[in-house]
Design a binder for these strands. Structure first.
Length: 497
RNA sequence: GCCCUCUUCGUCUAGCCAGGUCAAGGACACCAGCCUUUCACGUUGGUAACGCGGGUUCAAAUCCCGCAGAGGGUACCA
């Protein structure tokens, strides 16, 4: 493994909502890059958007990152040499940068009103240029300033586009030159005095000694603006790596709610586990070789490299996530799997919030009976509901398929009597007695097993039938069979209604 | 419109930089068989891709040019 302790990276979300999938991948890649190089991973909150940033979002992002296991070395909650790590608390620091820019004539005050600006924008567009500002206030005289101030106009601060092209060197995308003509004098401080993202982001990257900026490709255009600012400051710029976008469908659209859940928190609620999500995310744009799909965190850390990240966007395919989720749930030992599943049983009202420890062994047996069927933790309810409650229906389709042919009442009665006669009600005995019974009948096993399944669980899928019988116990098993036997004569009446 | 970027099976990707071993490999999904008390799992097999057009070369998925398509940006958002 390469070791370069001077590597410093950051994940800098804006707290305007939950942590979404794309953000989680960006965080993961930064985290892996830092771990791989023995460097430092910083969590910074870029909350310069006063309108949309909220405390709740900040907390949600922290929670999601922690749930994923992406702990940070420096940041609001853990400290570090560059506190504070929340941009809204760093205004004083940016002031220094703004002064520098202004004093060296690399930035200037602009008094244009929103109306004037939109006119300029329209004009530029009519001429097929993409600049929305024309440098109108670049060369204001002292007199102009006084006049505007007297009118009560509050100025913004704009950075001056240099004459030379901006060179953007990207570790993933390669090198591009951005002509001054396709850049414009960006606003870096709002008229209310609030510094804007493109200033604060690069200022903090410089300030915090960030060596590599790894972020989504949606920031590609911002990078040239930020390099322009850093150049004006004569500051050393970090290296950049833009991650291709995470897309929502094969049409190549950016991932959005229309394509299903987009937040990490929603996937947690849906019963996905962090190991699966991490493994899924790391393979979105990155690969180790031509065949490795499953990687442990250590595998990822040992092998992670920016050079193996592709250039094109990746579609978020939930089927792949489900496959990984099933895989990682299986890797959980019974105790862990049981613990993981408990909140979902509680959520679905099958288990008391304060269930007793005595129930734990029984719970574990139920979870064990489910075997490898869980795609998500939330699936536990589907497979085990009938263990917890008698309140279940028989699906009409199953009823029609298994209870309307032959003589199900006789078949079930026979099975019931067989079970009733058993003294040692254990798995081996139950299994052998039932099999003896099956062998005596002249119908296919399935014709007995499925009606029994329906009687006991209301379903024709799920755990091993003999295990279900044992977990339910003799008494409940018998009464549920009787319940179905009583139900069968009413079937025709029901369908007639 | 303008600027920037991208383009291998339906999806994630390997291969591309250092052209031949690629009549393109793996995985998810899908389909079929096997296994089986159900559903899953597992297992065996199958369908399926180098966006298009030029060029360079003995040879191009790989290099060059053009086109098309897609994405991102174009804010006193990030």
């Amino acid at each position: 493994m390469e070791t370069n302790s001077s590597v410093r990276v950051r994940f800098a979300p804006s707290p305007t909502g939950f942590l979404h999938i794309g953000g989680a991948r960006t965080a993961l890649f930064n985290w892996l890059f830092a771990k791989h190089h023995g460097g430092t991973y910083i969590l910074r909150i870029d909350d310069t958007d006063e309108q949309r940033s909220t405390q709740e979002s900040m907390q949600q992002i922290y929670d999601s990152l922690k749930w994923l296991g992406l702990d940070w070395d420096e940041g609001e909650t853990v400290g570090g040499d560059y506190q504070p790590y929340v941009q809204s608390q760093r205004r004083k620091i940016y002031q220094k940068y703004i002064q520098n820019l202004l004093e060296n004539d690399n930035a200037y005050y602009c008094y244009c009103t929103p109306e004037e600006l939109s006119q300029i924008r329209e004009h530029a567009r009519a001429e097929n240029r993409n600049q929305s500002y024309n440098g109108k206030c670049r060369n204001l005289t002292e007199k102009d300033h006084r006049k505007f101030e007297a009118e009560g106009r509050k100025p913004t601060v704009r950075i001056k586009v240099p004459n030379q092209p901006i060179l953007v060197q990207d570790l993933i995308l390669g090198e591009t030159q951005i002509a001054p003509s396709s850049l414009q004098d960006e606003v870096i401080v709002k008229s209310n005095g609030a510094p804007l993202y493109n200033l604060t982001s690069i200022a903090d990257d410089i300030e915090m000694q960030v060596t590599h900026v790894i972020r989504g490709a949606d920031h590609l255009n911002n990078t040239s603006k930020q390099i322009m600012i850093a150049n004006a400051l004569s500051a050393k710029i970090p290296q950049f790596a833009h991650l291709p976008m995470v897309l929502g469908s094969s049409k190549g659209e950016k991932l959005s709610k229309r394509h299903g859940a987009t937040s990490v928190d929603q996937y947690r609620k849906d019963g996905f586990i962090p190991e699966a999500l991490i493994n899924f995310l790391v393979r979105l744009g990155w690969s180790l070789d031509d065949k490795t799909e499953i990687l442990s965190i250590n595998d990822m850390i040992d092998n992670f490299s920016l050079s193996r990240i592709g250039k094109s966007g990746s579609v978020f395919d939930v089927k792949r996530l489900e496959w990984l989720n099933n895989h990682y749930i299986l890797k959980l030992n019974l105790a862990k799997r049981t613990s993981a599943v408990i909140p979902f049983l509680q959520r679905d009202g099958l288990l008391e919030d304060n269930f007793s420890n005595e129930e734990r062994p029984w719970l574990e047996k139920i979870v064990e009976s489910v075997g490898d069927r869980l795609t998500t933790l939330a699936d536990i309810t589907t497979y085990t509901k009938f263990f917890f409650t008698d309140d279940f229906d028989y699906h009409p389709k199953d009823v029609k398929k298994w209870l309307t042919k032959g003589d199900p009442v006789a078949v079930l009665s026979g099975a019931r009597d067989t079970l009733l006669a058993i003294e040692n009600f254990d798995l081996d005995t139950v299994e052998s007695k039932i099999k003896d019974y099956l062998n005596k009948l002249e119908i296919k096993r399935i014709q007995v097993m499925q009606p029994l399944r329906l009687a006991l669980s209301g379903q024709t899928f799920g755990p091993d039938l003999f295990t279900i019988i044992i977990l339910l116990g003799q008494e409940k098993t018998i009464s549920r069979i009787n319940r179905l036997i009583d139900y069968i004569p009413t079937i025709n009446k029901r369908s007639a209604n």
